[in-house]
Simulated scan of single mutants.
Amino acid sequence: MQIINKIFRLQKVYIFFFSIVLFIIIFSTTYLKADAFRVSDIEISSSFDLNFKKNTVIDAGFHISFSNLLSMITTSGDKNKIKNVSTKELKSMIDSFTISNEKFTNNVYFAKLETSFNKKKILTFLEKKNIFPSIPIKNKVLLIPILVDIESNSVYLFDNIFYKRWNKKKEKYQLLDYILPTEDLEDLSKIQNMLDTIDTYDFANLIKKYDLKDHIILIIYKNKDEFKTLSKINLNDSLKINNKTYSQINLNNEEDVEKILKKLKNTYEDQWKKNNEINTSIKLPLTLSIKSGEYKKIIALENTLNNIDLVADFYISNFDNNNTQYKIIYNGPPNFFFNDMNNKNFNLVIENNIWIIK
Rank of each mutant, 00 (worst) to 15 (best):
K213L: 14
T98C: 01
N5K: 15
T245P: 09
I290E: 01
P285D: 07
K291Y: 06
L185Q: 06
K263A: 00
N279M: 00
N306C: 11
F132R: 14
L261D: 03
P136L: 00
F52K: 01
K12S: 14
T287M: 03
K91V: 06
I131F: 04
P285A: 06
I146P: 15
N347T: 13
L180W: 01
N339H: 02
S289F: 05
P136A: 00
K296I: 14
K12Y: 13
D309V: 02
F37W: 02
M1S: 14
H215R: 04
I233T: 12
L301H: 02
F203V: 10
T75A: 03
I3M: 12
D320C: 01
Y109R: 04
D95T: 10
N343D: 10
E127A: 14
T267A: 00
D41I: 04
T287H: 03
N139M: 14
S100R: 13
V39Y: 00
L188D: 13
V257M: 06
S19P: 02
E258A: 03
N303R: 11
S40N: 15
I233W: 04
K190F: 06
E151R: 02
G332I: 08
Y201D: 01
T324W: 00
L288E: 00
F336C: 13
N252A: 00
F227P: 05
N80F: 04
K168E: 15
I26A: 13
D196Y: 08
T29L: 15
I233Y: 01
N318H: 11
L32D: 11
K83R: 13
T200P: 03
S46M: 02
I94H: 02
S289D: 10
S189E: 13
N347Q: 11
F338D: 04
N323R: 10
F104H: 08
I241E: 02
S65G: 13
Y330P: 12
H215T: 07
